[in-house]
Design a protein around this nucleic acid. Structure first.
Lengths: 244, 244
DNA sequence: GGGGAGAGATGCCGC
DNA sequence: GCGGCATTTCTCCCC
């Protein structure tokens, strides 16, 4: 067990990534407190001293420490202890390792960044370029304008010249989305000193309660999919073939 | 390279966890679409077929597939390809592996669940048990009542018998928190048919804009920390000693 | 560093 | 399954 201590220390010093499959328990204290009893997990120590602890199932890490923590490894009662502390966040984590199933470390080089399409921003851009998707006669104002009044997705005038605020959601619009639209409309009314401002929620779907609330405030909903959603739908057959 | 294919297939069939450190690129198509160019990453395949791809820095996975996907591994142009599809979610991911730095798999057993304290729920419980923390003379109503009107954290009467809704936040309260409180107060006013309902936001801090909005609606803020925060603060010295 | 808001959010609990 | 909501949310952008 003690052999792992210099291995961990050297790997951390060299900014290598460490992977440990082990039986362990985990304590965390900081923004909250948590305890995870013994069980088999995978621990990753990254080159920026991020630590994530994963159980054998599920998407999310069960415990973690954000980047730039201070990592120590030592032996206590025959068990391998790994601690990390982040003084700025007042975050502390202790992993008590009873048994190591496998251990690996390697220097990883990665300068690449992920590119994602089909975001809410892409939806807003689509509506700016195709205002007819909003409504007949809708005139968007320049996209630079929006920052002036906050983080409004789409901003413009309807065919009757009424100022209109549009909030986009790439998923089913919920009560929070209506809250948000309402807050923006009120902000605009206040800053412009006018009382006639329309609110439109643009999303693929809207929950029944959200729709009721939307109507209570005289807002409306338009059905819009994120730009790549239609694409994907059109390619569905092909994708399925590829995987068959 | 081809040696890894049976290793992956057998490990997945046995519900083992697989860890691969490699140089790879990743494609995703589903709720959105993404592409990640070549770089060194760590890939974990879990026993429930969850896949997560981690870059050498940062807390969050750069790509992932939720549990229960269908996983395949094969060779193409001398490269190791791992694909996962989730028909229910219309999710597809392809990892193209150029080089393997290390590879391991192991059967992991873990029946434990994490226990977290200091949550928003713990805050609400604390206020129910110690109503004086809210205000002198505050009388909470039974906690079962709250479901009737939604997910209100704390519900009760102030010393003047005025119905009061309290929303707890374990972090700095923001505009969204005020939105939420406002929505609950309005819901109560409507369902009870009364106009005199107070709204209180309980949190350690509140952002300036949120505080302004709170005042605009006649709501108030009380400074409350999540229950374990005070504990931690009291133990801060000791914790630092332990790590020193 | 704080504020504001999206995310392929995730995960939990309720109906 | 959907709806509503917290999360040690995380991450990004902008001030």
């Amino acid at each position: 067990m003690e052999n792992y201590i210099p291995k961990i220390e050297e790997a951390v010093n060299r900014n290598e990534c460490v992977v440990i499959a082990c039986n362990c328990s985990v304590n965390y204290s900081g923004r909250a407190e948590s305890f995870l009893p013994e069980g088999d997990r995978i621990i990753i120590i990254k080159s920026d001293n991020t630590i994530i602890v994963h159980q054998p199932t599920g998407n999310a890490p069960v415990n973690y420490m954000k980047p730039e923590g201070s990592i120590k490894a030592y032996l206590e009662d025959g068990k391998l202890i790994i601690t990390s502390q982040n003084l700025a966040l007042k975050d502390f984590m202790t992993v008590v390792i009873n048994q190591v199933h496998f251990f690996n470390s390697h220097k990883l080089e990665d300068g690449a960044s992920i590119v994602v399409t089909g975001t809410e921003k892409d939806m807003a851009d689509m509506l700016y370029k195709n205002p007819n998707l909003v409504e007949d006669g809708f005139r968007p104002v320049s996209q630079e304008e929006q920052t002036k009044y906050g983080f409004i997705d789409v901003f413009g005038y309807d065919k009757n010249g009424v100022l209109t605020v549009i909030e986009c959601k790439r998923y089913t619009a919920d009560l929070k989305a209506v809250d948000q639209l309402r807050r923006y409309v009120e902000k605009i009314k206040q800053s412009k000193g006018i009382n006639n401002v329309r609110g439109i929620l643009a999303s693929p779907k809207i929950s029944p309660n959200a729709h009721r609330m939307l109507q209570d405030f005289g807002f409306s909903h338009i059905k819009v999919n994120p730009p790549n959603y239609l694409e994907k739908f059109g390619r569905k057959q092909k994708s399925l073939m590829h995987f068959a």
